[in-house]
Amino acid sequence: MAERTNGLATADLPAETGSLVKEVGEVIEDYPGDQAYGPPAFFGAYNMLPLFEQGITGEGSAVGVVGAGTYHSIDLQIFWKSFGIDRALPIRVNLMEPVFERVTETVLDTQWSSSLAPGADSYVYEGPDARNTALLFAWNEAIGDNKVDVLSTSFAHREDAEAKTLRHQYDESALMGAAIGMTLLSASGDSAGADTPCSSPYVTCVGGTNLVASVDGVIHSEVAWSLSGSGQSKSFARPYWQEADVDSKTRSMCDVALSASPENPMWMRRWTNWEAYGGTSFASPAFAGMVAVINSYRKAHGKPRVGYLNPLIYLHGPTRATFRDITKGATKYWPAGVGWDYPTGLGAPDVAALAATIPEAARGPKARAQR
């Protein structure tokens, strides 16, 4: 057994226990103002509106997020109503001890993933807390459940601060997800360094930009965000699909990028209040919703779900060309530039063009020798 495993991920301290505080209030429309971006800005900036006009909003697809604790149901519905979104509540999947708290990360991931795919089913895989092995267990279970087409986690951790066992277990589970046809996404983190589970070649790493646009998504500029998590993996060899773009011998990040800068922040609603934040925690669930809409388009045209995304966006020229190259901006370690770069990867997605261009049948992961 020792020759076939990277280690044993043991249990953390017992989860705390308590009672989930009851929510109060009514579901009302309460538009927060134009000081930050809501989903309509992403609909416009990343070209989702042509699909919406065709009636493609995610129907027949499912998007999931890895959660710690749960979200605010009333605030979630107010978020939707305030931005003109009408949809069903997510399906909550309780994985371990009963949740007793509402966690900010889970709140925003649920709000943004569900809003960007208003017609898709939405799942929240709820671990009891944000400890490492609870999050890893939630990731494993969400993949094994195979109920969603695309799964996002924004609980990113610096790769250089995580045990080898944890890094490799995320990768092993992601390999399973790629093999069964899921699209796996992770926020790249907000430290300008490389994060887990983004470092897995089977995960599409979603970095951050500084988007300057109108509230309905008319773009004025978009540059690399200075804290976009990015860099060279300490854990995994360069995958075959990065050979033409990356000089490093290891997996390099990011792969794609969306708005994440707190200079031009995004709205979330938490405990009856509107709050504006930045971070790739918004970018990854937003892109997950976009992939769910793409899967809806593909289903309507008799095609399978996207599945393992990375080889397609790097190696299929027409698909690669649908990303808007981000050539300006930098982190303290890496600059953006023409073509692939560390802070923004291949660039920002044009969702309608992606839906129309991705090949009919996606390839699964290559043999382990390619890792």
Rank of each mutant, 00 (worst) to 15 (best):
A15C: 12
L51T: 06
K22A: 15
H168K: 02
C254E: 03
V218E: 14
T133D: 09
L95D: 03
D171I: 04
I326Q: 04
A88N: 14
A330C: 03
A36F: 11
Y202R: 03
N295H: 06
G329I: 02
L227Y: 12
A276C: 11
P201V: 10
K299C: 12
G144V: 01
A163W: 14
F155R: 05
M96R: 08
S122P: 04
K366N: 05
G217H: 02
E3A: 13
D75G: 11
K147N: 11
D149G: 15
W225D: 14
G339R: 09
A178S: 15
P265E: 14
G208W: 00
T204Y: 01
P118E: 07
V103R: 00
V65E: 00
Q232M: 07
W139N: 09
T57F: 07
L166F: 04
G329Q: 00
G67E: 00
G279H: 11
R92L: 11
K81S: 10
Q169C: 00
K22C: 08
P359N: 06
F83Y: 15
A288M: 11
A9G: 12
S154T: 04
T110M: 13
G289L: 06
Q370H: 13
Q370N: 13
Y333W: 05
S199W: 01
M48W: 08
H157I: 12
D341Q: 04
A330Y: 01
A187S: 15
V306C: 05
W139K: 08
R131H: 13
V215H: 00
V223K: 08
W271T: 12
L346R: 04
W267N: 10
A292R: 11
A352M: 06
A213D: 10
L315P: 01
E222G: 00
I28C: 08
D121F: 05
S173G: 04
N310S: 08
M253F: 00
